[in-house]
Design a protein around this nucleic acid. Structure first.
Length: 326
DNA sequence: CAGCCGTGGGT
DNA sequence: TACCCAAGGCT
């Protein structure tokens, strides 16, 4: 949960997670749907799918959590950092754990001028993270550097005046602490116009499950997709539902518009009230994992990303129920 | 290996 | 408002 996510964000999710899945066995036995539901809102949903798989792998292999960094790394979702953190903190192994905080602390302490996220920069920082590991106290050392980075050696406005190791900090001595770590040149992110269908049929609404890989994998959504050049939003919606579900629809009145920023792009989502055309083929699983016509009161049972949860919540509050007369 | 993969809070 | 980036891993 803590991968790329702050402790303050994780904390309530962790509490709830441990109530739902108090043992590895319970997690391994749970359906993916429930796992994603408890994870909903935390983002990077492959972490939930991988943790679920890891629990099943542990139960299949002998019921015990691996206790060495080498064995931990064989679990899906556990890379060099996570394996090092667990092995050093929980099992006392003398191994490094380079996270965003330690990366920043070491880049300043040793004035690393290679971009921290470049392959060369990563290699240098891992080397530094291993070089001063105190035998028998690697866990405390790793945690101390993480906490220093989280509280004092912050990305902006680091509190160098109260830093316990400022006399050893090369960047501070040179007065360039805010220019370390060096970051890679940023790339501009695209902005897409997206259309999503609120398909109404006899008091129920159509939601579809995304394929298990990729963005929001395994989560449910109101079907639709990105607008293409020289295409209106209603045309986009009709095309997308034909492609994904093989259905012909009537696009009705526009509903709400939502804006959202993902890691690598932004979207403006335009929702439309839609109808399935009587007498035409039923929805099929063409480019979706699954589909269901659900009542508004049951939407909460289907894990969704933020935008689709907002759309669903709006439905629960109520939109005009006039499907049978159109 | 460079590009993907969410969301929230801080500035 | 817009941008940064966080207890990274996978393909």
């Amino acid at each position: 949960m803590l991968q790329q996510t702050r402790v303050e964000s994780v904390s309530p999710y962790f509490q709830r997670w441990m109530e739902h899945f108090p043992t590895i066995q319970k997690l391994a036995d749970a359906p993916l749907q429930e796992v994603l539901g408890v994870w909903e809102g935390l983002g990077y949903y492959s972490r939930a799918r991988n943790l679920h798989l890891a629990a099943r792998q542990v139960m299949a292999q002998g019921v015990a959590i691996p206790s060495t960094s080498r064995e931990l790394r064989r679990l899906p979702g556990v890379g060099r950092y996570t394996a090092g953190a667990i092995a050093s903190i929980a099992f006392g192994e003398n191994v490094a754990a380079l996270d965003g905080n330690i990366r920043r602390v070491l880049a300043r302490l040793f004035n690393v001028d290679l971009p921290a996220r470049s392959p060369q920069g990563e290699a240098r920082l891992w080397e530094l993270a291993e070089k001063y590991l105190p035998e028998g106290a690697a866990g405390d050392y790793n945690q101390a550097l993480m906490d220093l980075g989280a509280t004092i050696c912050t990305p902006r406005l680091p509190q160098c005046a109260v830093c316990p190791i400022k006399e050893f900090c090369q960047a501070f001595q040179l007065g360039i602490q805010e220019q370390r770590p060096v970051s890679l040149p940023k790339q501009s992110i695209p902005h897409y116009q997206v259309a999503a269908a609120v398909m109404q049929r006899g008091g129920r609404y159509l939601i579809t499950q995304r394929l298990l890989k990729g963005l929001l994998g395994g989560l449910w959504e109101f079907p639709g997709g990105k607008q293409e050049p020289n295409e209106t939003l209603p045309e986009c919606l009709a095309r997308e539902l034909q492609e994904e579900l093989g259905i012909q629809i009537k696009v009705g009145e526009p509903l709400n518009v939502y804006r959202h920023a993902y890691t690598h792009f932004r979207v403006t989502v335009h929702t439309f009230l839609c109808q399935w055309q009587e007498g035409t083929p039923e929805p099929q699983l063409i480019q979706v994992q699954d589909l269901v016509w659900t009542e508004p009161g049951e939407l909460a049972n289907y894990p969704m990303g933020k935008v689709d949860r907002q759309i669903a919540s709006q439905l629960v509050l109520g939109i005009p129920a006039r499907d049978t007369e159109i």
